[in-house]
């Protein structure tokens, strides 16, 4: 890419991004800061398009702006209802500390920018290598091939991170209802009736698209999660008998399927995640569908922000060996 007619755009977009980030960081009203942050992420998606990374653009809009934005707004409401509304200003620093930090950050910026001149003029990426092996990978879209096959191990651990986030959040707190009572607005109900099928359809479309064009499990899952959240906002809830083991099973289903597919390799004398050639396509497809379902539920669970309260909270005491019980 060389500067062309788009040069003005390429100078303006980063400048606007930096300005939005600065405003979001310094605005003393936190609600405003979060809204600016969401705007920042939406513009960031535009930058990804410009950098020819459509998959990242989709993920940024859906996860960066959508999920993270919702998470921040939900947390802000809860924090303010618990601790009151506060304005947030930077700490009053001693001048020496300010000068020192400023100098360090500026020096880091200068050093990093100066080192960029040493980047090779003709870098060799892995693009050609991915293209050469694309036919064996079981998918036709390079990014999906990297995610689910060439570097599938990263993705397996990444799903573990998502699952871990839910376990950590459930460990911290019980779920607090979003709204004291469901919003009874005919507009919202009508909107939901229209949006839910659209979201479901687009999620399915994105997932199908991922095998040969930008799209895939994570983007589809965040659309599905958006649908689930809309349903929650308008008062839908999981029946209590479903919020125990059935919910947990659905949450881990994608990860378990991925893990099971991964160990076919070592059990048959191959490496981890080395699928038998004939099974590559169906295995990846199955893993991707189940992952989408589980990730959608995981993302929804992170926004709900606590363990379900409907189910029996704890198992009964395990053993009478309670001689060492706390104090």
């Amino acid at each position: 890419m060389t500067p062309g007619p788009l040069l003005l755009f390429d100078l303006l977009l980063p400048a606007v991004l930096l300005w939005l980030a600065w405003r979001s960081l310094t605005s003393s009203d936190l609600f405003r800061a979060v809204i600016l942050f969401i705007a920042f992420n939406l513009l960031l998606a535009l930058a990804w398009v410009r950098l020819e990374a459509p998959d990242v653009a989709l993920a940024e809009a859906a996860i960066g702006a959508g999920v993270t934005g919702t998470l921040l707004l939900a947390a802000l409401t809860r924090i303010e209802s618990a601790a009151g509304r506060r304005l947030s200003r930077p700490a009053r620093w001693r001048p020496a500390a300010l000068v020192l930090t400023g100098t360090a950050l500026l020096a880091a910026a200068a050093g990093l920018l100066w080192s960029l001149r040493l980047l090779p003029t003709m870098p060799g990426g892995l693009g050609p290598l991915v293209d050469r092996h694309l036919a064996e990978s079981g998918v036709d879209h390079p990014v999906t091939a990297v995610l689910l096959n060439f570097r599938g191990y990263d993705t397996l651990l990444e799903v573990a991170v998502l699952l871990l986030a839910v376990i950590a959040i459930w460990c911290l707190d019980e779920a607090v209802p979003f709204l004291q009572q469901p919003l009874e607005s005919p507009l919202l109900t009508g909107f939901n009736r229209m949006m839910l099928p659209i979201l479901l359809l687009s999620a399915g479309y994105l997932l199908w698209l991922g095998s040969h064009a930008p799209g895939g499990a994570f983007q589809a899952a965040s659309l599905l999660a958006a649908g689930l959240l809309l349903a929650l906002f308008s008062g839908a809830s999981l029946p209590a008998q479903w919020s125990g083991l059935p919910l947990r099973l659905l949450l881990v289903l994608g990860f378990l399927a991925f893990l099971a597919a991964a160990i076919i390799g070592p059990l048959t004398g191959r490496a981890l995640l080395h699928y038998p050639p004939a099974w590559v396509k169906p295995l990846i497809l199955l893993v991707e569908w189940l992952l989408t379902l589980s990730i959608a539920l995981i993302l929804t669970a992170t926004v709900i922000g606590g363990r379900p309260t409907g189910s029996r909270p704890y198992p009964p005491p395990a053993s009478p060996a309670a001689e060492g019980r706390q104090r």
Binding site: L126, L129, V130, H133, N149, F150, G152, Y153, G265, R270, A271, L272, L273, H274, Y275
Partner: peptide, 8 residues
């Protein structure tokens, strides 16, 4: 892993 040699 996956039978793919580094750097892939």
């Amino acid at each position: 892993l996956g039978g793919w040699q580094a750097p892939l």
